[in-house]
């Protein structure tokens, strides 16, 4: 079920980059929210991992589609 998943489309963003959109979404989020981030910037995987570790949130899935990198994040702490 994709209901309630917030898509964060950061494809094409190189500077300041996908973390901008993730941090923006985090500000308006609540515990239990699930984000699905779409990005093309190669650094997104390491940055999102570092962000999740810092903020205490959880990466559910990381996969590489032909046209984008997809990362699902569950908000556990807010």
């Amino acid at each position: 079920m994709d209901v309630g998943i917030k898509i964060i489309d950061s494809r094409g963003a190189a500077c300041p980059g996908p973390i901008t959109d993730l941090a923006r979404a985090y500000r308006n989020s609540k515990v239990g929210d699930i984000f699905e981030m779409w990005a093309t910037d190669k650094g997104v995987k390491a940055d999102t991992q570092a962000w999740a570790t810092k903020t205490g949130n959880e990466i559910l899935e990381t996969r590489e589609d032909p046209d984008k990198i997809v990362i699902r994040i569950k908000i556990n702490k807010r």
Binding site: P16, G43, A50
Partner: peptide, 12 residues
Amino acid sequence: TPFPRAYSAEPM
């Protein structure tokens, strides 16, 4: 900074 590093884009 809200970013992971001093300048957001890694190469710079």
